[in-house]
Design a protein around this nucleic acid. Structure first.
Length: 419
DNA sequence: TCTGGGGTCCTCGGGCCC
DNA sequence: TCTGGGGCCCGAGGACCC
């Protein structure tokens, strides 16, 4: 045994997280095609019906007693929206995430639609992360269903390359939540992330440095976290399809074709090199709220509606900031037009703020700078350059009074500034 | 029948200052 | 006085991720 432990980093990924959580609540849907996404739901009405059913109430999970016929069918769904995730039986119909609900309804009209319930997923997220923290304190959050864990100095973290500890974590999570996950353990985050996909679901994969050629190089470049559809298409254009083919290019060639930063990073990634640490705590950089309208709205004809939505978004961001104890000084807006083109504008203030009115004033100024010929389908409000409210000397508008009333000027920001 | 919401980071151009 | 570069901040846009 060596005195200096070998760096072992795990990437843990919950299996089909949202769908699995929903199936815990609705076990009667197991084996059926289910899509999660869009709004509305027939579930609440069905749940209300069970309010005076003693057997259902006594069971501890009344949801499990909702008859399958009571769920919303895709063919009866009205409105926009995309699928966040789909169960395996639904995928067999060709349904996948990011697909429009209307398109999915054609592929599988009888599929059951459930709305997304982020609060519930966050509850499970906190739970499984706490279980990990109790075993391995060096954990980095990567969204609701993913974490990196530094196994290096954890007792047992070196045994069988990390497999023993990974198995323990899997078991504890399953016992406590009923959910399965997949774990990859490797010398760094880059390889661990790829490894966690090897044996999904409920799998463990161990990757060592000497596995690079046999396990990593045959994979598509797209498997590298950070190479998306655009970069992949460019690589394909140069005849580079696998990570091995990428590794065969010189660093200079990649720099010449992708720039110094991306090129050099690609070269290191292809050779499995990554020394990023597992970051256990981080501060948010920005907070935002955005919404897609039920129908596209016209800047003039629908100005009243837009004004109301605009104000509400500002109030929501302000409330988020206040609740989490942050203030910000870069206020921005985001517009998506009916042709899906996006415009953003932002403005940095002299003072930090978390006040809904101040945010709306600045966001209104940003709005003035965008030509609004086309109809809008989305509006968003963002606050960046964040700081902790209690670490600043006397900041205007951050007193904990909650969100102020919009006042009589409501709608004026929108209308008054356009023309 | 089109295509969510909430983030992060990078690049590039312009203005400003030294 | 003119020109040029570097460093920095800001704003816009884009790529990517979950």
């Amino acid at each position: 045994m060596s005195d200096t432990p070998i760096r072992r980093i795990a990437h843990l990924d919950m299996d089909a997280f949202y769908a699995s959580v929903e199936l815990l609540r609705y076990p009667q849907l197991k084996g059926l095609p289910v899509v999660i996404g869009g709004g509305r739901s027939a579930v609440q009405a069905a749940l209300d019906k069970l309010a005076d059913d003693p057997a259902a109430q006594a069971s501890g999970n009344p949801r499990a007693h909702i008859p399958v016929e009571a769920f919303q069918r895709l063919k009866d769904y009205v409105g926009r929206g995309v699928i966040t995730t789909a169960t395996y039986p639904a995928r067999q119909f060709g349904i996948g995430s990011a697909m429009g609900l209307m398109k999915a309804a054609k592929l599988c009209p009888q599929a059951i639609q459930l709305p997304v319930d982020f609060d519930e997923y966050r509850r499970f997220s906190r739970q499984f992360k706490q279980i990990i923290l109790d075993i391995a304190p060096q954990m980095e959050n990567r969204g609701v269903d993913e974490v990196y864990i530094d196994f290096t100095d954890v007792p047992g973290g070196q045994r069988e390359g990390g497999r023993v500890l990974a198995r323990l974590i899997q078991k504890n999570i399953l016992d406590a939540t009923g959910l399965t996950c997949s774990v990859g353990v490797a010398p760094n985050k880059l390889l661990a992330k790829m490894a966690s996909e090897f044996n999904k679901p409920n799998g463990i994969a161990i990757v060592h440095e000497h596995d690079l050629q046999s396990l990593i190089w045959p994979l598509a470049c797209r498997k590298i976290n950070g190479i998306g559809p655009k970069a992949d298409a460019r690589l394909q254009g140069y005849g580079i399809h696998t990570i091995g083919e990428l590794a065969a290019k010189s660093e200079q060639w990649l720099i010449d074709h992708f720039g110094p930063s991306t090129g050099s990073w690609m070269h290191r990634a292809a050779w499995g090199r990554d020394d990023r640490p597992v970051v256990t705590e981080s501060e948010p950089v920005s907070m935002s709220r955005e919404t897609t309208f039920e129908r596209d709205l016209h800047a003039v004809r629908d100005k009243a509606e837009l004004g109301t939505i605009f104000t509400r978004l500002c109030e929501q961001v302000a409330a988020d900031l206040q609740r989490k104890g942050y203030v910000g000084r870069t206020i921005g807006i985001k517009l998506r037009f009916d042709d899906f083109k996006i415009a953003t504008r932002d403005q940095t203030l002299a003072q930090y703020t978390a006040d809904a009115r101040a945010i709306r004033d600045a966001a209104g100024q940003c709005l003035k700078r965008v030509p609004l010929q086309r109809r809008l389908r989305l509006l968003g409000v963002r606050v960046g350059s964040l700081a902790k409210a209690d670490e600043l000397p006397a900041v205007a508008g951050t007193a904990a009074h909650g969100v102020r009333e919009a006042g009589p000027a409501q709608g004026d920001i929108w209308t008054g500034q356009l023309f």
